[in-house]
Structure formats: structure tokens, C-alpha cells
Simulated scan of single mutants.
Amino acid sequence: MPVPAVHLKTRSGGEEVLIGSGSSAIRLSIASGTLLSEPVRLAYRLAGTDQLVLRALALHRLAMFFRDRRVPAPLFPVSAKARRQADLLRVLDVLAATSSHRAVAETLFGAALVARDWTGGSDYLRSRTHRLIRQARRLAADGHLAHLRSAFR
């Protein structure tokens, strides 16, 4: 199965290539020359030591792509913050349809878990659901974009 790739010309005249799609795309910034005229030889530049671990991970992702001819999904783990933000958006979707906290919990955690633990000996599930609802309402009140920006800093 071919991997999607997009070639972009930047406003400054440079080039970028996105290999794959979504949050697991590999981006190559072309420092000089062009990819459009003939075969190229790639060189990876490391400038400074800030974010060295992230830069090495990017190089590892590229090496795995060349080896396996596919974007290495396991090297693009979903962060806990991203999962949390997705949960908050799902909460807002459920709250738009109903005000039931139990319905929110069933959407997030599954009907079987809610049936077993919603009124059980511990209130962990209700507390977690209420906390997510509070955070989601704050997200809506403050404006989605501002909240998401601060969450990923």
C-alpha cells in the first residue's frame, strides 16, 4: 500500500515533504536544492543540543520509514494530553445531546464498566466523570482554541 506524500513549496522558496498523514506524518525540510528535478541525497542537520532527544526520534522515524516503507505508527505514541483533550471534546459532544452524567461516563468508559461501578462501593467513576465535565465546561466557556493552545505548551 503506497504511503501518501505531499510536496510543499514554502513562501520563502524552500520545499517541504510530508510523508504519511495526520499526527504521524514525517516532515522533511529541504535546506537547499529541489526534490523535483532529479534524485537527491539526504543529509540530516542537527543544530545545537536543545531538543536533541526529539530530533533523534525524528531521525529514527525516518530510518524506520526507509527500512519498512511505511510510517512507523508505534513511534508516534498519542500523548496523555492529546487523549485528555479528545476526551474533553467527546464530553462536550455528549453534553450537547443530554445533561446525563451517566451518559457521559458510558460514552467515555463503556456501558459495562458504568453498569458495574457507577453505584458501586467507590465513587471513583462518578468523580472522574464529574471532573471531566467541569473541565469540558471550562473549555467551552473559555473558548476551545485558547484552552487547547495552553494544554499543548
Score class of each variant (00 low, 15 high):
18 L>N: 04
18 L>E: 05
19 I>S: 02
19 I>R: 05
20 G>E: 06
20 G>R: 03
22 G>P: 11
23 S>N: 13
24 S>L: 12
25 A>H: 10
25 A>F: 04
26 I>P: 05
31 A>Y: 03
32 S>M: 02
32 S>D: 12
36 L>C: 09
37 S>N: 14
41 R>A: 12
42 L>E: 07
43 A>Q: 13
43 A>W: 08
43 A>D: 10
44 Y>F: 15
44 Y>C: 14
47 A>V: 13
48 G>A: 11
49 T>K: 13
49 T>G: 15
51 Q>T: 02
51 Q>G: 09
51 Q>R: 14
53 V>Y: 12
54 L>R: 10
55 R>A: 10
57 L>W: 08
58 A>T: 10
60 H>M: 12
61 R>D: 00
61 R>K: 01
63 A>W: 08
63 A>I: 08
63 A>H: 09
64 M>V: 03
65 F>N: 04
66 F>A: 15
67 R>M: 11
68 D>L: 07
68 D>A: 06
71 V>P: 02
72 P>L: 01
74 P>F: 02
76 F>Y: 14
76 F>G: 07
76 F>R: 10
77 P>G: 08
79 S>P: 09
79 S>R: 13
80 A>I: 04
84 R>F: 09
90 R>K: 14
91 V>Y: 12
92 L>S: 14
93 D>V: 03
94 V>E: 09
95 L>G: 06
96 A>F: 04
97 A>W: 01
97 A>N: 05
98 T>W: 05
98 T>Y: 05
99 S>I: 03
99 S>G: 15
100 S>N: 12
101 H>Y: 08
101 H>V: 00
103 A>R: 07
104 V>T: 04
104 V>G: 05
106 E>Y: 08
106 E>C: 14
107 T>V: 00
107 T>P: 00
108 L>Q: 05
108 L>A: 04
108 L>G: 03
110 G>Q: 00
110 G>H: 00
111 A>C: 03
112 A>F: 01
116 R>N: 01
120 G>L: 04
120 G>I: 09
121 G>E: 12
122 S>G: 12
123 D>H: 11
123 D>I: 09
125 L>G: 02
125 L>K: 02
126 R>N: 06
128 R>N: 03
128 R>V: 01
129 T>F: 03
129 T>N: 04
130 H>T: 14
131 R>V: 03
132 L>K: 13
132 L>V: 11
133 I>A: 06
133 I>V: 15
133 I>E: 08
136 A>V: 06
136 A>H: 07
137 R>E: 13
138 R>G: 10
140 A>N: 05
140 A>C: 04
141 A>P: 08
